[in-house]
């Protein structure tokens, strides 16, 4: 019951953010220096063509009216027409969304899989050689551009060792996991560098807690104390850090999709830019924001599940 209330309040808090997101996406078009219609159509466009495009973009009305129209369209799930593909933006976005979701989810899973064991080892061997090496590794990883890491992976695992494909999405779950492994690992690496630092220090802090003494005095094994008592508490603050970095995770996919030629939203966004397909850019930006907000709610839920005290 409490958890439901928690979720409800959380959703309510999102209303102003949602309004803000639509305003930002709506106003984006105004950033274009000069007349967007002329830029889209070029200098030789006929006045009729200009007027028609202005009408279809809704630019012939006052600003507030345009925004109301924009909101009305959004409410109906209408993101406008792609200028490049001459199709509804919504259809094109929905077609590309699964690839991006795969990449995001896979990266998150890999990031956790990398983070947890390394953070445990570093925390247990605090200030010893292993800890220093892991610490240095996170420092290096955080300073590496992900697209470059991806290229190095390609050169080594795909071209030299030939064990992973260079690009593409793959068909079916197994094949997809295989195809997306390198791109996801690339996105996961920089995220886990952040998470390892955070989880390591919270494990170190939790290890000093009184209840760890109780657990040890019970005669539990060290393994159980770490996995069941320490880790579970330490993860609470790390989930918060993960929440803060969701934008980082999702944003990371944009670059990596372009590198590994994965037909996701990021790749679509880039191709739309060169085609001056502004409605498409707007639509994709909006979807990315929705994605961040959705994953944020997911982390909040995770948080509420891990920590029984959450009743905010």
């Amino acid at each position: 019951m409490d958890k439901l209330g928690f979720l409800g309040r959380r959703l309510l808090q999102l209303v102003p953010v949602a309004v803000g997101i639509t305003i930002v996406v709506f106003l984006m078009l105004r950033l274009i220096p000069g007349d967007p219609v002329r830029i889209i159509l070029g200098s030789r466009a006929t006045p009729e063509a200009i007027a028609s495009l202005q009408r279809s973009l809704g630019l012939d009305k006052p600003l507030w009216e345009q925004y109301i129209l924009f909101l009305g369209n959004l409410a109906r799930g209408d993101l406008g027409m792609s200028l490049l593909y001459r199709q509804p933006v919504r259809a094109l976005v929905l077609e590309r969304l699964p690839a991006t979701l795969w990449l995001v989810a896979y990266s998150a899973v890999l990031a956790v899989a990398i983070t947890v064991p390394l953070a445990i080892v570093a925390a247990r061997r605090k200030d010893r050689a292993v800890d220093q090496v892991i610490r240095g590794g996170t420092l290096l990883t955080l300073a590496m551009p992900s697209f470059w890491v991806g290229i190095i992976f390609m050169m080594f695992f795909s071209l030299r060792l030939d064990i992973f494909p260079v690009s593409g999405l793959g068909e079916g779950v197994r094949d997809r996991l295989y195809h997306l492994f390198l791109p996801s690992l690339t996105v996961a690496l920089s995220l886990s560098a952040i998470l390892i630092r955070s989880l390591r220090s919270s494990i170190v802090a939790v290890t000093l807690a009184d209840f760890v003494d109780t657990a040890r005095a019970k005669g539990l094994t060290e393994r159980r104390i770490m996995l069941k008592h320490i880790l579970r508490n330490a993860l609470i603050s790390t989930v918060t850090i993960l929440g803060v970095n969701i934008g980082f995770l999702i944003g990371g996919t944009v670059v990596i999709e372009n590198l590994f030629a994965i037909p996701g939203l990021g790749a679509l966004m880039l191709s739309s830019i060169s085609g001056r397909d502004y409605p498409m850019v707007q639509g994709i930006t909006l979807v990315f924001a929705v994605l961040v907000v959705a994953v944020n709610i997911l982390t909040d839920l995770t948080y509420a599940i891990i920590d029984p005290r959450v009743r905010l």
Binding site: P16, I23, A289
Partner: peptide, 24 residues
């Protein structure tokens, strides 16, 4: 703070790409 809340709802790089898409 409202502006901040909205801004962090976008992935940073996506917002940058979108702005550059408009500005060139």
């Amino acid at each position: 703070m409202r502006v901040v809340d909205v801004a962090v709802a976008f992935p940073f790089i996506v917002l940058l790409i979108a702005i550059i898409a408009m500005l060139g």
